[in-house]
Simulated assay, not measured.
Amino acid sequence: MKKTLLIALSLGVTVAATSTLATAMDPETDRQQLVDYFQAKNPKIAVDEYVNGAYIYSADKMQQWEAAEEFPPYLDAIDAGEAHYNKDIATYEKCFGTDVSAIRPKYPYFDEKTQQVVTLEGAINSCRTDAGLKAYKWKKGALAQVSAYLAYNARGQKINVKIDTDGARAAYEAGRNIYIKPTGQLNLSCAKCHTYNAGRKARSNLLSPILGHTTHFPVFRAKWQNLGTLHRRYGGCHKNMRAKPFKAQSEEYRNLEFFEAYVSNGLKINGPGYRE
């Protein structure tokens, strides 16, 4: 009980507690305590199963999801992403190299020169604009399709985000603060749903756990009927909190992605994915 309480406190039960603990918490200790929390809460669920999101909490939902994944609705998007990539392959290879399976696992990372987190989608558009090509629109469309193509080719590789500088740690803590800080008219935090209440229902839908959040993006959502990026989903979550979303690829959302990816270190990339 004491250990569970300590873990809960370290995840930020109150804003006052989190502001103090953030300066004292080592990211790897933070990540391991989060893993320990979920293992204590659901000892029958193996850590590597968290890549499957909320479906791990319901055998019926899991069966439905597995059936959908037999002929997933994102296959056309992967093909479209490959076509987009090959159209400008000379440009992309200058930025990312010739091995498409090695691209997705590099992101997100902290760039010491710019002192900013770099995401895959941000790198794709930077690659394009640096070469004089038109940037893709954020959230969906061609950008999500190219991202899906790269994720598909990286399936099975593990997330391995590194935090070995003060700048990277500051970005992690900034993302962590967004995750645990209540916001919006409903005074909710990401942690309220995706840590403390993961596996419970909200509006008849199961709440997903933070572990594995970034492994399966971009995703094809039944609600959207198309493919969307992680930052599109972040914006939707903030709207559900009745909070003003940050812009896609804003520093805030890039830091949040960096935090979420780090705590999922060791889990396998399984994007793109299908979700309700």
Rank of each mutant, 00 (worst) to 15 (best):
Q32C: 03
A174K: 08
E93P: 02
M1E: 10
T129D: 04
N42M: 03
Q225G: 14
Q64H: 06
M1T: 15
A123V: 08
Q225E: 13
T98C: 04
L5H: 05
L256M: 10
K61M: 07
T215C: 09
A90L: 12
P27L: 10
K162N: 07
Q64T: 08
A131P: 09
G132D: 12
D111A: 10
K134A: 15
K106P: 02
W138S: 14
E112C: 03
Q32L: 09
A16L: 09
G228E: 11
Y136P: 05
D99F: 06
G175S: 06
G236R: 00
G235W: 02
K268M: 12
P27N: 06
K239H: 13
S126A: 13
Y149G: 04
T215A: 07
K106V: 14
K181R: 03
S250K: 07
V51A: 06
N265S: 09
Q33I: 13
V118C: 04
G53A: 09
K268Q: 12
D79W: 03
P43N: 03
R128V: 15
R232V: 14
A170F: 08
W65I: 07
Q64E: 10
Y37W: 12
Q64A: 13
T4P: 00
A222D: 10
V118T: 11
G235E: 15
G141Y: 04
N255T: 10
H216V: 12
R169A: 13
D30L: 13
G212S: 11
A83G: 05
